[in-house]
Design a protein around this nucleic acid. Structure first.
Length: 263
DNA sequence: TTTCTCACA
DNA sequence: TGTGAGAA
């Protein structure tokens, strides 16, 4: 009696699916020790080790084709660069996951900080906040808020990575144009928002038409409270916050205030 | 239970 | 690179 096991026993032993074992066979990397009269595949210790190796290499991200090469004809010298590449790819994957982790942390942080915001009015939640210096790079300029469409995004794509994952700053210039700025690491700085106090209004709106009205209300509020606003009006779009309320757009209006102690 | 095949993500 | 379903 030969010391062999069936495919389902092998699958259970190595914690893979029966399907997967047959798939490896189809690709030529793992063959049964022999096939019984009933056409059942039977596997021995050699195959157990072979499968263990295959699974290790799969874990390293190698394709089944490359695994086949490694386990058949390649020399140790030929295998080394393949493993070095696997290391490089793994490091890239770790960076990607770390970025995703940072994004999720930021998401939760922002959500919580907004929930705690003060003075709720009809138009939005107003507060005076301190902001550290922010360096922005110009993405592109447009004539008015309505001219931002999908076509426009496609035109200017490429200049920017991870669109909509980061804050997008709309800066209203005196000339009437609107500059779209992003906060990109190691890019040239086109606009510096100085450190200091800002009047902030966070708003969640169903449609964009509401925004123009809110901007008026924003300045009316500042005047009523006696705040001296200077510099351009900045509107920060936080599209990722819509993950919490998909039917609403999330913005923060900001204006530098030179007398935060007013009121 | 296992095999094979086809469709599908 | 696998998975799911169905028939034998």
């Amino acid at each position: 009696m030969k010391d062999v096991i069936t495919i389902s026993e092998l699958a259970k032993l190595m914690q893979v699916s029966v399907h997967q074992i047959r798939y490896f066979e189809e690709k030529g990397v793992l063959h049964p020790a022999f096939t019984g009269e009933n056409q059942y595949r039977m596997y021995g210790m050699n195959e157990v080790y072979r499968l263990a190796h295959i699974l290790l290499l799969r874990k390293m991200g190698l394709s089944v084709q490359v695994i086949q090469d490694c386990l058949s004809h390649l020399t140790a010298e030929q295998i080394m660069p393949i493993f070095r590449q696997a290391l490089t790819d793994t490091e890239a994957e770790i960076r990607r996951l770390r970025d995703t982790k940072h994004f999720i942390e930021k998401l939760l942080e922002k959500k919580e900080s907004i929930s705690q915001k003060s003075i709720q009015t009809e138009g939005g939640a107003y507060s005076i906040i301190h902001r550290d210096e922010v360096s922005l790079s110009l993405w592109f300029e447009m004539q008015d808020a309505e001219s931002l469409g999908a076509q426009r995004l496609v035109e200017h794509r490429g200049n920017i990575s991870n669109l909509f994952e980061a804050d997008i700053h709309y800066v209203y210039n005196d000339s009437g144009t609107i500059g779209l700025y992003t906060q990109e690491e190691n890019r040239q700085s086109d606009l510096i928002l100085p450190t200091g106090s800002y009047l902030s209004c966070t708003l969640f709106v169903q449609n964009e038409e509401r925004i123009a009205k809110t901007i008026q209300e924003f300045y009316a509020y500042a005047e009523e409270k006696g705040y001296l606003c200077s510099g351009p009006l900045i509107m920060v779009e936080k599209s990722y916050l819509s993950l919490f309320t998909p039917d609403q757009l999330h913005y923060e209006l900001l204006s530098y205030v030179s007398n935060p102690e007013a009121e």
